[in-house]
């Protein structure tokens, strides 16, 4: 029989039963929060990339017809430095854009539809947007130049909010882990007071006692953390599968890249590390106060 590595019977403590489950729940929540944050970030990146360097000019339909104005505006756009390409959208393209709102086969031909001009600009040397906007308005009053920035800004705000909430959740998880481990460790110190006293009397340093508590906390937190992570991954796969069945282009993309998957195991490791360090510091601090 090998000699036992721990002198304190910590495995029999109540903490051995409840701590892994609590850590599992916390890691589960933290993993979901992180995945949501990554998903929100991806949505913003996707829209940003899709819309970057693009603008839309909307020329209102007038009584004299918008085509004349549209032609003048198209000319003005192409002559503007920094504009790479400007193209009037055809009727089919407009019909495709309107389809989600008006449905297929809608008789919108009789409606006063504005002319839409898709513009691509040079991202490295973009035109002066406000000056261009003034110029276009002079040519055709009511012309709208949409550089998508306000829309993207709101999306970015949303993504940042999601990331902030995710950060708060992770922070709360860390704080909860610290609190739980402190509680469990102090309970262990109290329950095993006589054993600890004996260890001291036969020459154990405080660090020797602390090493047993920290190893115990590391084991429990790691066990709970891995369980929580596995449950979170299962949940994400399930949700991603459900999202993939619908046409939800604006919803977060929950399919993670390999590098992102590889980062997730760091979460239980981090929580286990926090638990270990907390247990050690708690023991050293508590024993250090003793005479």
């Amino acid at each position: 029989m090998l000699l036992r590595r721990t002198d304190l019977p910590l495995d029999r403590d109540a903490s051995g039963r409840f701590l892994p489950w609590l850590v599992a729940v916390m890691v589960y929540l933290a993993a979901l929060a992180l995945i949501c944050a990554i998903g929100a970030n991806k949505v913003v990146a996707r829209w940003d990339q899709g819309l970057a360097g693009r603008m839309t000019v909307q020329v209102p339909a007038g009584e004299s017809g918008s085509d004349a104005h549209a032609g003048a505006i198209l000319t003005a756009l192409t002559e503007t430095p920094g504009v790479r390409e400007a193209e009037i959208l055809g009727a089919e393209e407009i019909a495709r854009l309107l389809e989600p709102w008006l449905g297929t086969g809608a008789a919108y031909q009789d409606l006063p539809m504005p002319t839409l001009i898709a513009v691509r600009i040079d991202r490295t040397a973009p035109p002066d947007i406000s000056q261009l906007r003034r110029r276009l308005t002079q040519i055709a009053p009511g012309t709208v130049l949409d550089d998508h920035q306000s829309w993207l800004g709101k999306l970015l705000d949303l993504a940042r909010s999601v990331q902030l909430v995710a950060g708060l959740v992770v922070g709360l998880v860390g704080a909860s882990a610290v609190t739980m481990v402190i509680f469990a460790t102090r309970m262990g110190l109290s329950v095993h007071g006589r054993v600890i006293e004996l260890l001291h009397l036969v020459g154990a340093q405080d660090s020797y006692v602390a090493s047993q508590f920290q190893a115990h906390a590391l084991r429990l937190a790691l066990r709970g953390g891995v369980l929580g992570l596995l449950l979170a991954i299962l949940t994400v796969l399930l949700v991603a599968n459900l999202l993939g069945q619908g046409d939800a282009v604006a919803l977060p993309d929950l399919s993670l890249l390999p590098i992102e998957w590889s980062l997730l195991p760091l979460l239980p490791l981090l929580v286990a590390l926090i638990a270990m360090v907390t247990a050690r510091l708690t023991v050293l601090r508590t024993l250090g106060r003793m005479p």
């Binding site: 036992r4 002198d7 019977p9 004996l198 036969v202 020797y208």
Partner: peptide, 23 residues
């Protein structure tokens, strides 16, 4: 003041282990 959860061997080994001797 023996530790009830440790065997006689482990109880006696305690001071040596605390002293850092090899198992």
């Amino acid at each position: 003041r023996l530790l009830d959860h440790l065997s006689a061997l482990e109880n006696v080994a305690l001071p040596l282990r605390i002293g850092g001797q090899r198992a």
